[in-house]
Design a protein around this nucleic acid. Sequence first.
DNA 1: TTCCAGGGGTAGA
DNA 2: TCTACCCATGGA
Length: 311
Amino acid sequence: MTGNVDSAALMRKRAHSVTVPPGFDFVATAISHGWCVLAPFAWDRDASALSYRARLPGGRVTGVALTQPGGRDNRVRAEITSGAGSRAGLTTEDWRALRASLTRVLRLDDDLAPFYARCRDAGDPFSRAEEAGFGRLLRAPTLFEDLVKILATTNTTWSGTKAMVRNLVELAGTRGAFPTARQVARIAPSRLREEARWGYRADSLSAIARGVDDGTIELDRWESWRGPTEALADEIQSLPGIGPYATAHALSILGRYDRIGVDTVFRSFVRQRYFPRSRKMPTDDRMLAIYRPWGEWRSLAYWFDLWMDHQ
DNA sequence: TTCCAGGGGTAGA
DNA sequence: TCTACCCATGGA
């Protein structure tokens, strides 16, 4: 028995690392859009570290801190900081599951060569996208979490979004980890409204959670969608509380970039960037026309444009 | 107090 | 298809 315990302990490690594709830039990926500051994610700018609470097989929860110690092109380090296995580290099975999750979060399987080729054709400043390591929009460990966060961005301020997500994790999650669809489904909409402060969005949140939990909303099918974007978009937009903006955002999360989510950020950015002399706010169509030549890379080009503006 | 934010749903024209 | 209005919440 003792021998078995010892050998199991030997298999446990507190720090792991993940192989990344050539040119992978961890920081550019982590701060690609606002996700890195939505709970349970937290971004440490000084340490260039992304930490969060991750679910392991069996529902256990652990703290993880991600960094890229050698900088661009080097392996991403995952340090187990707390929770299940914090003393002895993760088992082989735990790490296998976490590594698969990180592939989704960091989009390690994305092929950006076609996007970068298009960026080179576009010239400055887009030609700098590859050098900047931009192109991977950070994702949550699950599509359910991404959809909930997108819903939390609708018709509110960014501070409101952060508060709603944080409140939901505290109300329905497990030891700091984002709640599963089942956990959210089990919370009465009135509590989502009043305790998590989701306001009128609570009914949509609850309906989406229940649909994902009972299988009527098939997120796995969306993740592996091979058909036309239009049909996928129709399904996404059929969700309660999910309109054109949220659908476009979800499509970007799913790696389909041919729609731009028009929101107040898009309008104010495009106006100041491309219509600085316009006294009136240009129509949505005029602003969307700026990125129309990008075709299937439209929203990624917009995200890069916006990202460059913040650097 | 009023306005509005990383919008969405609906009724009525 | 387009417009007007309402939807909770919280910060400015």
